[in-house]
Design a protein around this nucleic acid. Sequence first.
DNA 1: ATGAAAGCGCTAACAT
DNA 2: ATGTTAGCGCTTTCAT
Lengths: 344, 344
Amino acid sequence: MTSDKTYRRHITPTVTVKDIARLSSTSPSTVSRVLTGAVPVADDKREAVLKAIEAAGYRPNLVARSLKTKSTRSLGLIINDILNPFYGALARGVEDRVSTDGYTVMFCNTNESPERELRSISMLRDKAVDGVIMAPTGSNFEAMDSLIKSGTPLIQLDRRMPNLDAGSVTVDNERGGYIAAQHLLAGGHRRIGFITYEIHQMTVAQREVGCKQALAEAGIGDYPVSSMLFDLSDATAAVESLFAGDNAPTALIAANNRIALAALRVLKQLKVNVPNDLAFVVFDDLEIFELMHPSLTDISQPAYEMGCKAAEFLLAQLGPNGDAVSRHQVYLPELIVRESSLRN
Amino acid sequence: MTSDKTYRRHITPTVTVKDIARLSSTSPSTVSRVLTGAVPVADDKREAVLKAIEAAGYRPNLVARSLKTKSTRSLGLIINDILNPFYGALARGVEDRVSTDGYTVMFCNTNESPERELRSISMLRDKAVDGVIMAPTGSNFEAMDSLIKSGTPLIQLDRRMPNLDAGSVTVDNERGGYIAAQHLLAGGHRRIGFITYEIHQMTVAQREVGCKQALAEAGIGDYPVSSMLFDLSDATAAVESLFAGDNAPTALIAANNRIALAALRVLKQLKVNVPNDLAFVVFDDLEIFELMHPSLTDISQPAYEMGCKAAEFLLAQLGPNGDAVSRHQVYLPELIVRESSLRN
DNA sequence: ATGAAAGCGCTAACAT
DNA sequence: ATGTTAGCGCTTTCAT
């Protein structure tokens, strides 16, 4: 009868540099040298080591190496929600870019919760990631700053915090709001609503600013619903309240894809005809928007490339003689006109 | 003038257990004991240690701990594509579940490439993750088996490989195909096409089996396009070829959301009326399918819960006296009837 | 170019 | 209950 207390599946005995040194009649340091490749090693010795490695099926223990070198070759990615296709695209870009350099990415969802974000930062820091890419909620300046000061580079993605010594990859959201509103103004709309929600999000606030600016320039800065709160948890009531009163909007700009989807679902139930009764413009360009009926006019952001670029920035800082200065890249959003904003 | 060679941002001097031991007039082992909490420590000593930790702002070095304990408290997640909402939901479920236990997840996209999958397995293995959750492409039995044998538990998600000693969380795809076909048969359709693509994917193959079985039971197993290849890279040609000849299908089942979207885009361009000219059923239930016109009848899978469950299984194996047996959970897919499959 | 030895920061025997 | 010691597997001076 075997002891059932400590029974484990078969464990391959772990082979170490020491073993390889012995098998190749060299020393641990020589083995290490051929492994890292930084220092010259005589050809015959190198051969012997390589052969031993092959024969023994040796794999370096990266944890041990990290302890010594202070580099884990892993990065953190903190975003709102991987399920949201916009963030999914960011994540995809990041992973595609860094994986080619042998980096691995740990991802954390925050759900826009500052507490969860703080926990994630702290966790990643303890795990000693080499760098972090994040779309900050905006509430954890201290933790981010401290992380950077402690020597872990940080790149801000999609959103950017003022006064933080960290590179960034963002979109000109004001411009996005501006061109969205401009498009609707050109279509003859005067009562244009910008629907957003209670959660504080810098990007959304900037879009609103741009939107309002366009309205102001057109001399209609005082339309009462130029911006309105939208309750995602009760979209029906939210939409109904938009149309209560006799000053209802004839056009709507949704601050992001989540809000748009929630609003559209209700509009469909209420049989509001888009675009004839109501023009509609959405932030974020999802593949599927082209297939909807009506197809959706939207403001497109190059999410995948943004992820790649953020990764690029981070890798540049991590590399030898890494960037001393923080780099910032701002992408221009693009208006993609489809059916939802054009009256028949 | 400062040396510009080794200039680095300010680095906080790292504080270690030794420092805490000194500051609290105890020993490193005592500090470790209050840290891990496994062994009793006298109250006054504990107090002193805690105070010193607080004062010095000490954070344990998890890399060092991992080297000693052989546990990194990080997991690997290998999936096809995080951008695909189905996999996004799986990933979300996994992360939500494991993060509450202090685990962190490294994610890798394979793009259905066996080579990339192999690299990911190897990378995660070298990084010594405590466990792996993956949706296998099917081509790396050896590497998976070897990983498991080396002591790293593995949970298969969405797909399952025969003869592999690893738990799994899957959907009964045959049943999914069966109920999809059955629904169309009940609607009077006889020429039902199942559109799939060249990439070998177990789930898709199983759906096809279920679909064919339903057709066979209805006595129409020999319809020539009961299954057809769909070229994602040239969807237009693919769709046109479906309707070439005089035996065109009156109903289509798309093997997954990617194929469906590609097909629908072309169908829209060709002005094929769904559902009147062609009934349509899709695998995967995306939120947005409800908002499309027509809204899409689909086969729904509980992706988020599947992710949670896989995480659950893995944590169970990692815990103290972890599961000895591999657990398997099979979810039942659900038919969600909407407009795209019902003639007006 | 190579080997011996030290040490990264932690935990876990082993003594006491 | 606590301190001393060893050692996880690796890289890196430091000699030679």
